[in-house]
Nucleic acid binder design. Structure first.
Lengths: 337, 337
DNA sequence: CTGTTAGCGCGTTCAT
DNA sequence: ATGAACGCGCTAACAG
């Protein structure tokens, strides 16, 4: 129907010709920059509509040197934890008129570094979620002219701004809670060794001694299957409570416990970390720590946005507070005696 | 340290000058196109490395008219179901040297249409996952010069190639299974009315009569909370089994049933749909239908890739087979009498 | 095999 | 307020 098809996609030029104005005028109207008389503005708009014209974002990027795009690199798109963060970034940035590009490094530090560099070349800024790369690589990224932000990063000396959650405080709340209801011997099932998150959560185990709880650390992992497989070993130490790296692991443990006919919390108490959706609906509902995942993404975007706008941002790591959520998987230790 | 900083980012030009060759040679070396003598190739590579040069993907896109980027629009980044699909697309396309851009329409059909058009302008192709837009919009998209593919689309007359899963067959397998173990009265908790998926799964309810099972349909939704809230109403109809739109809903029901002291499968059997990770680990483990989510993404990419390469693709809807997974949440009806 | 040159589609001075 | 002309960084003919 339209006469656009004949000459291929419409461009500033074709619109200018159709509207009887110069390309500069078309550019000004479409970009909303400069001042154009109402009458000509209308003519341009009409021609654009008629030709089905949309300015090419690519050409625009080349001309302006900016793409209004954020790149995000995550270690693993399978993890619900990460995509809550991604959603936070996506929505907050979309509200500012930015588009988000996501890439998955598949837990490979080398691939991560390559992706990061690559994506950064096509975007105005980069968010590295839970980076696996070592500090040298991170420092290299820092030397880029483009803003780079870490979320859940190593929390130290990388030079890049880093926003995380208070793993130490959150985990400590959990131990304190257990101590208060009489637990003295707990087993902590730790997460994947590569994860920075894991370090801080482990630290809390040492501090738990202050509350009089003795924590035995066992390696597990970060998945349901890992929890399931680690449960028997945990029981070997005769704990009154099992604390897990995250909710997924806790569900794996719960499953194994149920298989063996061990009651939660009557025989042993159980805690998770993250408060994923499911945790309120398991039987028993899981005591855990809520972590502001989507907010991590949105706040991260906002500081990144400030960096894009040229503001100086303090690279000191920041941490969002975690919140204890007590449900039914933890009970006082007397009841189990 | 390097001498790149003084003149800003390196370009073909600066590298050409540093290597003592022409820009064309640099371009050929960097893009791996054309033939350049080994000696000069080395000189260019050395200069590029020294200046920290990386070709600008944006300029390259403008020059070639192709970006090697796929755009993906999903209704809701919160849904694990969609994430698996996205991961499938991401990995398959990455293997072909493409990057993926993801946008979230937040279940808004209008936003979806706008996003789709917008993203398509910045990519070589578009994947619409579970589109909410009506057929007119979809048909409009079809008129684009760029390849567009639907995943889990309306499965008819949209003109766009559409790849989905066999919802009807999968759901039917579930009813047949229930019939075989003696169930005659089942309640089906249906999903969100807007989802195309829901329609086909509903259809199966009518066909279930062939197996002698009478299905009462109740509206629920697609979340754990929806299942939890619909459970009481379902029980009202005195079913021996409750079939759910998806696994999430089933878990919500399971939770409510447990609260009320109703045994699964002793008092009532329960089925889900999707086979999400968790389903193997609930107590009891959930009988469900496995749907090849990641494969949906990867296969989708492969046909899209063929379209990008100019091959003609049959727009007839295709469906990937679903697979029945019998676990512990369904039992023979005699046992419950 | 190599270099020169003309765009890709747009923003942006600089005149007018 | 408007238009002409140049440049963003790169690729793709076309000569040589």
């Amino acid at each position: 129907m339209t006469d656009a098809d004949a000459t291929g996609p419409a461009t500033v030029r074709s619109v200018a010709r159709a509207a009887g104005v110069s390309v500069a005028t078309v550019s000004r109207v479409m970009a909303g920059t400069g001042v154009v008389s109402p009458e000509r503005t209308e003519r341009v708009l009409a021609a654009a509509r008629r030709l089905g014209y949309t300015p090419s974002p690519i050409a625009r990027s080349l001309a302006t040197g900016t793409s209004r795009r954020v790149a995000v690199v995550v270690p693993n798109l399978s993890n619900p934890y990460f995509y809550d963060i991604i959603r936070g970034i996506g929505r907050a940035s979309a509200a500012d008129g930015y588009t988000m590009t996501v890439a998955d490094s598949m837990e490979d530090a080398t691939a991560e570094a390559a992706l990061a560099t690559d994506m950064l070349a096509q975007a105005d800024a980069l968010v590295l979620v839970a980076p696996r790369a070592d500090r040298a690589v991170l420092r290299e990224l820092q030397r880029s002219r483009r803003p780079v932000l870490m979320l859940l990063g190593p929390r130290a000396e990388a030079g890049l701004p880093d926003l995380g959650v208070d793993n130490l405080g959150g985990m400590t709340m959990l131990y304190r809670h257990l101590a208060e209801i009489g637990h003295r011997r707990v087993v902590y099932l730790s997460g994947p060794p590569g994860a920075w998150q894991n370090r801080r959560r482990l630290e809390a185990a040492r501090r738990a001694e202050r509350f009089g709880v003795e924590v035995t650390v066992l390696e597990a992992g970060g998945t349901i299957a890992a929890g399931h497989d680690a449960a028997d070993a945990a029981l070997t130490h005769g704990p009154t409570a099992i604390a897990c790296f995250n909710d997924l692991v806790a569900f794996g443990v719960l499953n194994r416990l149920t298989e063996r006919g061990i009651g939660v919390p009557t025989d042993v108490s159980l805690t998770g970390f993250d408060d994923i959706d499911f945790s309120a609906y398991s039987s028993p509902a899981l005591t855990t720590v809520r972590t502001p995942r989507e907010r991590l993404g949105s706040e991260g975007w906002h500081t990144l946005r400030r960096m894009i706008d040229g503001e100086a941002v303090d690279p000191a790591p920041e941490e969002l507070a975690a919140e204890l959520v007590v449900r039914d998987s933890t009970g006082s230790v007397q009841a189990s005696a």
